[in-house]
Simulated scan of single mutants.
Amino acid sequence: MNLTAEIIAAGTGATLARATVFAPFMQAACATYHILDPRDVAAFLAQTGHESENLVYTKELWGPTPAQRLYEPPSQKAKGLGNTQLGDGRRFCGRGLIQVTGRRNYTLAGIGLDLDLVNHPELLEQPEHAAMSAGWFWWNNKLSALATAGQFTTLTERINGGTNGLADRQALYGAAKKALGIA
């Protein structure tokens, strides 16, 4: 499937200029991680569009908010993310188009993408790595099966841990399906 900037813009809510920057990397991520079925591509575009606020942010905005403070040890959230050292919460905040979060996930993504993300977490802010990390996450969490089965809410829960932003994600999903010519 040829992912044009126009399709990416429609499916992610991004400007055409921003979609043009990401187009070759989104295409590569889909090809590499076998995100090929149009329903799967539509879900991938919608979810990455929402998670990155329309391909604008490849790094989580840091307050820290009360929720972000829980990324720091000794909280249970930090433990679940593999954050073991003070400062890990901020250092390993969400990055990439699906917001890889936590020392453990950066370590695993680094292995999968052949990048030193533990020492250089900022690499996931670059469009190429932001897109590929989203594809890597999609593949490793077996999200294609949910997407092709039309289980969009479950897919959202797997990415987000809940249904935050579900209405926006669904609107982007509808736009992505329309851009891809599927009902």
Rank of each mutant, 00 (worst) to 15 (best):
T84Y: 01
E72W: 00
G63K: 11
G162W: 02
L146A: 01
S144M: 05
P38I: 01
G150V: 06
P73D: 00
N119H: 13
T48Q: 03
E128H: 11
Q126Y: 08
A171W: 05
W139F: 14
A167I: 11
D88I: 05
M132W: 15
H34R: 12
L81C: 06
G162N: 14
L16H: 13
L146M: 11
A147K: 03
I159T: 04
L81E: 00
E125V: 05
P73A: 04
L3V: 03
G135D: 06
A147W: 00
T163G: 03
C93S: 15
A10R: 08
A171L: 14
L108W: 09
E128Y: 10
G80E: 12
E122P: 03
A134R: 01
H129T: 04
P38A: 10
P74R: 07
E60C: 11
S144W: 02
Q27M: 14
D88Q: 08
P38R: 07
A17R: 10
A19V: 07
I159Y: 07
A179Y: 05
D116H: 09
A131V: 04
L155K: 01
P24I: 07
A147D: 01
T20P: 07
A10M: 05
W136I: 09
V56M: 13
K142L: 13
E157N: 06
F44Y: 09
L81R: 03
C93L: 12
N141Q: 13
N83L: 04
L70T: 14
A131F: 02
Y71Q: 09
I7Y: 04
Y57R: 15
P24N: 11
N160P: 00
H50D: 03
L155C: 07
L61C: 10
A176F: 02
Q170T: 10
P66H: 13
S52E: 04
K77M: 14
F92A: 06
T101A: 10
G165M: 09
T154N: 02
G110K: 06
F92D: 09
R39I: 06
G63T: 05
F25V: 07
G102M: 07
A176M: 06
H50Y: 15
A131C: 10
N160H: 03
V100I: 15
I8R: 03
L146R: 00
R18T: 12
F152L: 13
E6I: 08
Y57G: 00
G80N: 15
G94R: 04
N2S: 12
L180C: 10
T163Y: 00
C30G: 14
F25P: 01
